[in-house]
Amino acid sequence: MEKVRTTVPEPIVNIIDLFLYYGKVEALKKIALDISRKNITSFIGPSGCGKSTLIRCLNRMNDLIENVTIEGCIRIDDQDIYSPAVDVTELRRRVGMVFQKPNPFPKTIYENVIYGPRLMGIRKKGILDEICEKALKKAALWDDVKDRLHANALDLSGGQQQRICIARAIAMEPEIILLDEPCSALDPIATAKIEDMLCDLKKDYTVIIVTHNMQQAARISDYTGFFMMGELVEYSVTSEIFTNPREKQTEDYITGRFG
């Protein structure tokens, strides 16, 4: 049975029949979905279902892994990001990413946040200071660290470190922010802070988040995709998925009767 393609308002990303292979192993099978601009879209599913692989396709982080073959097409703002004309570094500036484990650089807080802008060639201290302050404010970290911008970022707590990583991504002024299970290493309080912040962020950015935590997906996201075994099982408005899933598999998973 051919699945119905869920339509979303103002799509920014179009994924069209995407296949991905690690060597000979098929990791993504014919994924097709659109992602709505300035909303939060979450991907849920059991481990190994391909959701992380999918978001790593969106900023071509999979290029770094050997033996990956990709078929199909991903368009961001109607541009095929896998076409040879695309500059990967330029793409990654437009599509920021936050990883599962907080990975601040062993530099000062300030240096961490302005890492990207520096790479883009911004040298003026005034501009960099401004970028740093703005990004930290958006990441809801400014009040915590404004007095010690030149302290080592590794001295912060785990939640703060993750927010540094988010601020670092925001400082690039991306269109899309990808978050790969950003709260899995954090305690509930730090998680709540980050969730609040993400809800603020969607005013300016398109947020795509991979999560294991279904409550989290239900709480913050506008659209949810459920993945299993490399396939997109169901994709629709979050409330729909959690209250009235179309597919049996989805229902089993979200009600905890999975397996």
Binding site: N59, M61, L64, T89, E90, R92, R93, G96, M97, F99, N103, P104, F105, Y115, G116, L119, M120, C165, R168, A169, M172
Partner: peptide, 9 residues
């Protein structure tokens, strides 16, 4: 390394 690449380095 990934963190750096993801920022367009």
């Amino acid at each position: 390394r990934e963190g750096s690449y993801a920022l367009g380095a």
